[in-house]
Amino acid sequence: MTIRPLDPVQALERMMLIRAYEETLIDLHGRGRAAGTCTSVGQEAPAVGVVSALTADDLILTNHRSAGHLLARGADPGRMLAEVMGKQDGYCGGKSGSLHISAKELGIVLTSTIVGGELALATGVGLSRTMLNQPGLNKPGIVACFFGDGAATEGRFQESLNLAAVWKLPILYVCENNQWQAFVHRKETMLADGIAGQAAALGVESAVVDGNDPLAVFDAASAAIDGIRRTGKPFLLEAMTYRLRGHFEPDDQGYVDKAELAHWRDRDPILCLRARLEREGRLTADAVAAIEARVRATMEAATAFADASPYPGLDALTTDVYA
C-alpha cells in the first residue's frame, strides 16, 4: 500500500482554519447573525485526519456537525458562512442553513441532520459505487460516512453496517465519539466504552484511534481505506475525541463535569499538535504567527463575502422541490 504522508504543519493549519471558522460562527451567533449551530470545536483531528486520507474520487456523507469535514475537503468558508446566514451564495442557496450543508462539487454528497440519516444513505452511495464501477461507466471510489456516538444508538447504525457487510459495500464508517449525545453523556446510553465493539458481531472490521491526534487518525484511516479499496468491504473507525463546546450555540455546558472538561481541554488537538511540532523543532513561533495571519485573513474575507451575498429571491421558496 502507498500512503502519502500527511504534512503535520499543513494539518495544523487546516485544524486552525476549522477552529477559526467555528469561532467566527460563534461570534456571528452572539450578534444574532447566524442561527443556532453545532460547532466542531475540539473535533478537528478526525475531520482533517480522515479527509486527508481520501482521494478526489471518494465521496463523503456527514451530519449536523460537519464544518470540519467540509473545510478539510477544501470547502470555501465564505460559501459556508453564506449558507449559515441563509444567503444566496451558500452551497445550498440558503435552503440548508448550518445543519445539512452538502457540496456535490467537493464530493460531499448528502448530509442529514436526522441523527442516523447519513448512515441510512451511505449504503446507497456505497451501492452506486459498486454498481457504477464498471469499465466506461465511472471511476472507482469509496465512501466515508461521519456520524456520532449518539447516531450509533439508532437502529440504523446496525442496519447500515449489516447491509454494507452483506453486500460488500466500500464504506469507511467514521464514528466521532465525542462522549456527548446532545445533553446526555454516552455513559448514560450505552454500557460499552465505545461502539467499535459492535462491528465484529456484524462481520465488519474496526479500529479505535486517538481522535485528538490527526496524524494517528490519518494513519488509521489510510490503512482502513487501503483495505476497503483492496477488499471492497466496509470498515468502522472510531475516533475518541471530545466536544469542547456545547451541543449548539448558545450552551453554557453547565451540565458537563468540570474535571472531564478540564481533562479534555488539556488534550486540545490543536494545542497538542502545535506543542509537539515546536518540541520537535518543526515549527517556529514565526511560522505559527504566519499561519494565524493567513487563517485570520481567510476568515475576514469569508465573512465579507457572506455579508455581501444577497438573500435568495423569494421565488426560491418553491424551487427545487421536484426535479
Binding site: 448528502l110 441510512a120 444513505l121 449504503t123 452511495v125 440504523r156 447500515s160 447491509l163
Partner: peptide
C-alpha cells in the same frame, strides 16, 4: 447485482435507495 434480496430492514432499504438514487442509480 441488479435484482437483490435484502435484510428485513425497511428503513435501510429505503435509505439505500435514496443514497443510490442521489449518486447515479434508479433503484
Amino acid at each position: 447485482a441488479r435484482v437483490r434480496n435484502t435484510p428485513l430492514a425497511e428503513g435501510i432499504i429505503a435509505g439505500t435507495a435514496a443514497g443510490a438514487a442521489a449518486t447515479g442509480l434508479r433503484p
